[in-house]
């Protein structure tokens, strides 16, 4: 079973990806693990996640680097919010 990854705003533009499915790789059990895995995949992801401004949500709730991941989760990456 895989996880769904969503990218918004400049994370979407810099990674060139809006949504993707990924089978959780061995050793990836938290948001921080997933970011490290994605950064190692290609230069675009590495550059996008180099910013300290990247925020995450797991199953549509704001998450932290140590938030655990499970198969079936929806993980989203985005910059700080600027609505209103």
């Amino acid at each position: 079973m895989s996880i769904t990854i969503l990218y918004f705003a400049w994370l979407r533009e810099r990674t060139g990806t809006g949504i993707e499915q990924l089978v959780l790789p061995q050793g990836v059990s938290t948001v921080a693990d997933l970011i490290a895995f994605l950064r190692g995949r290609d230069a675009a992801h590495d550059a996008a996640f180099a910013s300290p401004l990247v925020r995450a949500a797991v199953n549509q709730v704001f998450a932290r680097p140590e938030t655990p991941l499970s198969p079936g989760d929806e993980v989203a990456f985005f910059p700080p919010v600027t609505g209103g």
Partner: peptide
């Protein structure tokens, strides 16, 4: 409401 909307609802402006 507007203060929290600005800091905790996932909208992005360009």
């Amino acid at each position: 409401l507007i203060d929290f909307l600005k800091t905790s609802a996932p909208f992005w402006k360009k």
